[in-house]
Amino acid sequence: MRTLFKDMGLLLWLPITILLAWWFGSANSTSIYFPPLELILETFARDWLGPRFVTDALPSIGKFLVGFGIAAAGGVFLGMLIGLSRRLNAALDPLIQFLRAIPPPAILPIALLLFGIGASMNIAVIALGAIWPALLNTIDGVRALDLQVIDMTKSYRLSPAKRIFKVLLPAASPQIFAGLRVTLQMSIILIVVSEMFASTSGIGFYVLNSQQLFAVPETWAGTIVLGLLGYVATLVFVLIERRVLAWHRGMYNSLEKA
């Protein structure tokens, strides 16, 4: 019990100190850049716990989820196709290496020209820009499949569906998830950036717009919303990953002990 309290203290002293320092340090602040934390939180509550959540936050979240979904599913699907064919992999490798080396936000102007301002542009940027980590990791994961496992699937004459869904995908899943995690981070960056770049609504638009209007508390409040979005999305992802890869952690731990 005592050690538990000690550990809680250890975990909490720094965040609490920072928050208290911010709260009291900014309490009587007259600086335009650092409004009192109280004011920031009031603005946050007023804007984001109200109707704006529905009009601006939900559409952003929706576009982000659709974009991430396309990037993730597309990356895994294409990665499987490419990873399974030596020739396809050889043929596409240089092209893929080049495309993934382009900083994804740099394609924003192209997407804008193609799709104009709107949800389809935000989604397209995420789908095209964030697909690469999922794609490359799936290719690597599929290609790394153990020869003895391949022999096993052949000699027991497993059907193609079984080979893919029961053997190939699970075998590559640790690597696929590592790629998906980066795809997720990139998707968050891209939804924010694409809304800042060209949009008339959404969280990214709100934050950049309030900065341009010099509405400082709003800028801070919006930054907090973006931070929370990133935090929650990652948290949900990690929870899913833990569930799906429970076998992998178990195996790893059992090897560590041996």
Binding site: V149, M152, S155, P170, A171, H248
Partner: peptide
């Protein structure tokens, strides 16, 4: 191709048994 009435038991069980099942 691998015959249907032939089963192989591989050398390295840690690799031929699938750890996610």
């Amino acid at each position: 191709e691998p015959p249907a009435k032939l089963a192989v038991v591989f050398q390295d069980y840690s690799r031929s048994l699938l750890p996610w099942m």
